[in-house]
Simulated assay, not measured.
Amino acid sequence: MKPELLLSVDSKQSFWIDPRTKLYMLVIFSIVMIDGKTDGISFWLKPILALIPFFLLLSGRRKKIAIIYLIVFIVSWTVNVFLVPYMGLIGTIIISLLAQFGTRWFPSAMMGYYLLSTTKVSEFVLAMQRMHIPEAFIIPFSVMFRFFPTISEEAGSIGNAMRMRGITGKNFFKNPQAVLEYRIVPLMMSVVTIGNDLSAAALTRGLGNGKKRTSICKIGFHWKDFALMIIVTAALLVFLLF
């Protein structure tokens, strides 16, 4: 098993920022990008703000995801601004839903992906403790950080095993029972087992004992954190005031 799957992060990062900065940026993105406005100041503000996850993903060595995200956003924004207003009712409903997903939800989703994929569990727990978040919230989130990467690896292993037996997603309509029985059911069983194991591991490490935990991780705000927070805060103020 790859170490980064358990840590949810690569050991080497060229552009490290504090987990609290990532959370703050995720909240701002959820507020600004979720709005459906594309005229006025939003015509310039949202595309500029949407570039932040792209550069962050590049700095986190997620080049493929970054390029896919940029292409999806550009296409969705172009369709939403220049094509949808001139289409018929039925075409507008169908295409607009897809375009709205790419412009309103996808940037926030990429910020969430960046948070999960570039933050160590220990860093996240320490950041939450410094924010005085109750452990009732810290424990589930710490389990979540390990849960999704582990499930992703488990799904890949099941898929590889089933491909050797000729059972793939392409055969779903030919033999849906086999796909459900040999791919979906084992994955569901693994989800339950992995969730229980990770919860037990979190409690074994001392989470939930009611005492202050020590940590070997070092987190803190640097100039990059302040710069990013100033940029997204300014974007929020411009969005709210104009």
Rank of each mutant, 00 (worst) to 15 (best):
A50V: 08
S96W: 05
T150D: 00
D35N: 15
M164I: 15
M25G: 13
T168F: 02
T214V: 06
S8Q: 08
K224Q: 14
M131I: 10
R163L: 02
L98A: 15
V143W: 04
V72W: 10
H132Q: 11
V81Y: 11
E123F: 11
A127F: 06
R61G: 00
M188I: 13
P107S: 10
A127I: 10
I71N: 03
I151M: 15
T78K: 01
F147H: 04
H132T: 12
V143Q: 03
P107L: 11
K37Y: 06
G169N: 08
E123L: 08
A136V: 14
L57C: 06
M128F: 09
L45Q: 13
T119F: 09
M110D: 03
R165N: 10
V179M: 05
T118S: 15
G169S: 07
T119N: 03
T233A: 13
R163K: 14
L203Q: 13
G206R: 05
S142I: 08
L116S: 09
A50R: 04
I93S: 09
L180F: 14
F137N: 00
P134L: 10
E4P: 00
F55H: 02
F173G: 00
P186K: 06
Y24K: 02
L51P: 03
R165L: 14
M144F: 14
A155P: 00
I184G: 00
I216Q: 09
I74V: 14
S14N: 12
G169R: 00
V32D: 02
V238H: 01
A136I: 14
A66T: 06
I230Q: 02
I34N: 00
A202M: 12
V192L: 12
Y69V: 04
T233N: 12
Y86E: 11
I67N: 06
S76N: 03
S215H: 10
K174I: 09
A234G: 10
I41K: 07
R62W: 11
F172I: 15
L70G: 03
I65W: 10
L187C: 04
E4C: 08
L203W: 00
E135H: 03
I68Q: 08
G166H: 11
I93Q: 12
T214G: 08
L115F: 15
A109M: 15
G169V: 11
N160W: 08
V191W: 07
A161C: 07
D35W: 11
K218W: 04
K174A: 08
L89V: 13
Y24Q: 00
V185C: 01
F73V: 01
A50I: 05
A235V: 07
A66F: 12
K22R: 14
H132P: 00
W223I: 14
L97G: 09
V238K: 01
K12L: 13
Q100D: 13
M188P: 00
K218D: 12
Y86D: 08
Q13L: 10
F239Q: 05
V238G: 05
I167N: 03
E4V: 05
L236I: 02
T168C: 05
F124A: 14
R183E: 11
V27N: 04
Q100M: 13
I93Y: 07
M188L: 15
L228F: 09
L187K: 12
P19A: 05
M1C: 04
P186S: 04
T38N: 04
A202F: 07
I41D: 02
K37Q: 11
L180G: 01
Y113F: 15
I34D: 01
Q177R: 06
L180R: 07
F148M: 12
M144Y: 14
I74N: 01
I52E: 01
F124D: 03
Y113G: 03
